Computed example of a mutant assay.
Amino acid sequence: MAIGILSTGSFLPRRVVTNKELESVVDTTDAWIVSRTGIRERRRAEDGAASSDLGTIAGMRALHSGGLSQLQIDGLVVATSSPDHIQPATACVLQAKLGMGAVTAFDVSAVCTGFVYGLTAAVGMMRGFPQQYRRMLVVGAEAYSRILDPTDRTTSVFFGDGAGAVVLGEVPDGYGVLSAHLMADGTQAEVVGVPAGGSAEPASHATVSARRHYFHMNGPKVWEFATTQLPSAIKEALLQADLGVEDVDLMITHQANARLIEAVGAAVGISQDKVALTVERYGNTAAASVPITLDEAVAAGRVKRGDVVVLASVGGGMTAGAVVLRWY
């Protein structure tokens, strides 16, 4: 049974935060941010908006672009690392907001690799239980502005808010998801994350005072992991699909950093003209960045039937993954 992407959708909040605006908050400059990250601006959710609110709009847009209603979806997977709550799953909140009925709904937490993990899980469910799961909605939704320390230039300049979504369904043989490769290295779990607020370090006055409820990231360690493991994941996924780098028509990576994306492309051997970018305008939207960028590529006509598309991400955990599909 071939499973592919039937439709896409995305949502970016209206508020734009430029590098110039950040200069008044943290010790940085527009020139420094652009030269090291390629980011010029990012979006911020309205006050009171949660990840599920952004994901609801992206999900509805994906459904509408496919001519589907929410009642025609058999399952919902939400990839997020800025969930509405520790519990319940943001997917359950989003399911209710979409009015989907009592279908399967769960979160995937693999930080920025979450959408690739979630997409792979959904495809596996559809292939394993085709009578129960004919169509599934996979959403990447992030409100990172809620977990960032605005005074920390090592994180606040990188991240933005947004959501993207895809609808999965049956496609003709030879199309759709051809392969996937996922990996994780838990020995590097401390490189990226929010240290406090869970069962290992419950919330207290001390953890709040130490700002340990904010997102933390070791940039050099992330770079080292990403530039080795992400190219490896992409090559392995292509190998599983019996394809070579020369067969790739478009690569959409997690939009972490323009310089990182360039380094990964060079390591894989994919020219930059085959790489889709949104990082300059939206920054790093974590688990939402791949579906947002894919939706924009589809809207721009960069993806046509028969194209080989690679979706790839690296994230906290540390995690990495790639999916190869032939577009239908």
Rank of each mutant, 00 (worst) to 15 (best):
L178H: 12
T80G: 00
L277I: 11
G140W: 00
A91M: 05
E224D: 13
V279K: 04
G118Q: 07
P130L: 09
V245H: 09
P195T: 11
A180T: 06
A206S: 12
G59V: 13
F159H: 05
A210K: 07
I5D: 01
P13Q: 13
S232C: 10
L148I: 09
M217Q: 13
S7E: 03
I5N: 03
V167D: 01
A110I: 01
F106D: 03
L168C: 09
G59Q: 10
E46H: 06
A267R: 14
A203D: 06
H64R: 14
W327H: 10
L238R: 10
D74M: 10
L325D: 02
R305P: 11
L230Q: 12
S10R: 01
T56A: 15
G55K: 05
A226G: 07
K97W: 13
G317I: 02
D149N: 12
T90V: 09
E46G: 15
M318D: 00
Y214G: 10
A256V: 12
W223V: 14
V157H: 01
M136C: 02
V167Q: 01
A210M: 04
M318S: 00
V25W: 00
V103E: 05
R135G: 13
V171L: 14
V192S: 14
A141F: 07
R127Y: 09
V314K: 00
V303R: 06
A266S: 08
V290D: 05
W32F: 11
H64L: 14
V308S: 06
G193L: 06
V77P: 00
A58E: 00
G198V: 09
V17F: 07
R281S: 08
V248L: 04
L12K: 02
G265C: 03
I33S: 12
L98I: 14
G186D: 12
G269C: 04
I270C: 03
G66L: 09
T80C: 01
G219R: 09
I86S: 15
A102I: 02
I33W: 08
A62L: 10
R326D: 10
L250A: 10
G118L: 06
T28Y: 12
S204T: 14
L178W: 05
E46L: 11
G186L: 02
H205E: 14
D273N: 09
A196R: 05
H64A: 14
Q272A: 15
V116G: 01
E142T: 01
D47Q: 11
F225T: 00
A237N: 03
A89K: 12
G67Q: 13
D27W: 08
